[in-house]
């Protein structure tokens, strides 16, 4: 299938590949998977507890080109944003930015889910549980 130039660019030069210490209380980890294809994505963020700004983001994705590009883009987008701002990122924003075709929408959903899961994990560590965060936190790991 044909990938857009932006997908190919992220695929060839993924930003922020790697991992952060998941034991660090300021690090939130989101591990999610797409049942459609069996791909998995891990996204981690280091969050400043005072400013709630995401200072660092890393990802590691085992999946298709679109999933890699979506997570790479997600790490770029969340850096420098507050937790609340990052939570407002929608998979449709990613679809638009990367011009993903309909069959690749689930790859972008994965990235949105990973952002949410990482933030819930961080909130859980920080003792901020809201009921919605609790459910998705089940997907993340501490």
């Amino acid at each position: 299938m044909a990938y857009s130039d932006k997908v190919i660019e992220h695929y060839n030069n993924p930003r922020n590949v790697g991992s952060l210490d998941k034991k660090d209380p300021n690090v939130g980890t989101g591990l999610v998977g797409a049942p459609e294809c069996g791909d998995v994505m891990k996204l981690q963020m280091k969050i400043n507890p005072d400013t709630r700004v995401i200072e660092e983001a890393k990802f590691k994705t085992f999946g298709c080109g679109s999933a890699i590009a979506s997570s790479s883009l997600a790490t770029e987008w969340v850096r420098g944003k507050t937790v609340e701002e990052a939570l407002s990122i929608k998979n449709t924003d990613i679809v638009r930015e990367l011009s993903l075709p309909p069959v690749k929408i689930h790859c972008s959903v994965l990235a949105e889910d990973a952002i949410k899961a990482a933030i819930s994990d961080w909130k859980k560590k920080a003792g901020e549980g809201d009921p919605a965060a609790q459910t998705s936190a089940a997907q993340a790991h501490s």
Binding site: Y11, P14, V17
Partner: peptide, 10 residues
């Protein structure tokens, strides 16, 4: 690289 995906759809 560690993002070990295949560009091809599988």
């Amino acid at each position: 690289m560690s993002a070990a995906g295949e560009l091809d759809d599988v």
